[in-house]
Measured scan of single mutants.
Amino acid sequence: QAPETKIVDKSRVACDGGEGALGHPRVWLQIPEDTGWVECPYCDCKYVLKGSKADAL
Rank of each mutant, 00 (worst) to 15 (best):
G36P: 01
I7C: 11
H24A: 05
A56D: 10
Q30N: 10
Y47D: 08
D34S: 09
G23R: 14
I31V: 02
A21M: 12
E33M: 08
Q1I: 11
A14G: 07
G17H: 02
D9K: 01
L49A: 05
D55G: 00
Q30E: 13
D9S: 11
A2G: 12
G17Y: 01
L57M: 11
V8K: 03
P32Y: 06
D34G: 06
T35P: 10
T35N: 04
L22K: 13
G36V: 06
D16R: 03
A54F: 07
P41E: 04
D34E: 10
Q1G: 12
L22I: 05
G36R: 02
P25V: 10
D9P: 01
P25C: 06
T35D: 08
C45S: 15
L57C: 09
Q1N: 11
C40T: 07
V48H: 01
A54C: 09
A54N: 06
Q1R: 14
D34H: 09
R12L: 15
Y42F: 12
L22Q: 11
W37K: 04
R12V: 14
V27I: 11
L49E: 09
D44R: 15
E39D: 09
C43N: 00
G18A: 09
R26A: 06
T5A: 11
T5K: 07
D9H: 09
A21K: 11
V13W: 04
V48C: 07
S11R: 12
A14N: 04
K10L: 07
D9Q: 05
A21I: 11
C45E: 02
T35I: 13
L49K: 08
V8N: 03
K53C: 08
A56C: 07
W28Q: 02
G36W: 03
K50Y: 03
P41I: 04
L22S: 11
G51R: 00
Q30W: 12
R12Q: 13
D9Y: 14
H24P: 03
T5H: 10
C45W: 15
K6W: 10
P25S: 13
V48S: 00
E19L: 10
D34N: 09
T35Q: 09
D34L: 10
L49G: 08
V27D: 01
P32D: 12
G17W: 02
C15R: 00
A2M: 14
V27E: 02
K10D: 13
K6M: 13
E19G: 14
L57R: 02
E33R: 07
W37S: 05
L49Y: 06
Q30K: 07
G18H: 13
V8I: 06
G36Q: 05
G18R: 09
D16S: 10
W37T: 04
I7E: 08
P32Q: 06
L49P: 08
K6H: 15
S52K: 01
A2H: 14
V13M: 00
Q30H: 10
A14H: 10
D55M: 00
V38P: 00
E4F: 15
V48I: 13
S11A: 13
A2E: 13
C40Q: 05
Q30M: 12
A21L: 11
A56G: 11
L29T: 02
I7V: 11
G51Q: 06
Y47M: 04
A2R: 14
R12T: 14
L29A: 02
C40L: 08
G51P: 08
A56Y: 13
W37N: 04
E4K: 15
L57S: 14
P3A: 12
P32E: 07
C40S: 04
K46W: 05
E4Q: 14
G17F: 02
H24D: 03
C40V: 06
Y42H: 09
G36H: 02
L29W: 01
G51K: 00
A56H: 14
A14T: 07
G51N: 08
E19C: 15
Q30C: 10
A54K: 05
R26I: 10
Q1V: 13
G51D: 07
P41H: 04
G36D: 02
P25I: 12
V27Q: 03
G17A: 04
E39C: 05
L22N: 12
D16F: 10
S52W: 05
A14L: 10
D44P: 14
G17L: 01
Y47R: 00
K10F: 12
I7R: 09
D34R: 06
L57N: 12
C43D: 00
E19P: 14
A56N: 14
Y47G: 06
T35V: 13
Q30I: 13
K46S: 03
A21S: 10
C45M: 15
R12K: 11
Y47N: 03
P3H: 15
W28V: 03
D9E: 13
G51H: 04
V48K: 01
C43F: 01
I31M: 00
Y47C: 10
A56M: 13
K53Q: 10
S52I: 04
C45D: 00
Q30Y: 13
T5E: 08
W28N: 00
A14Y: 14
P32G: 04
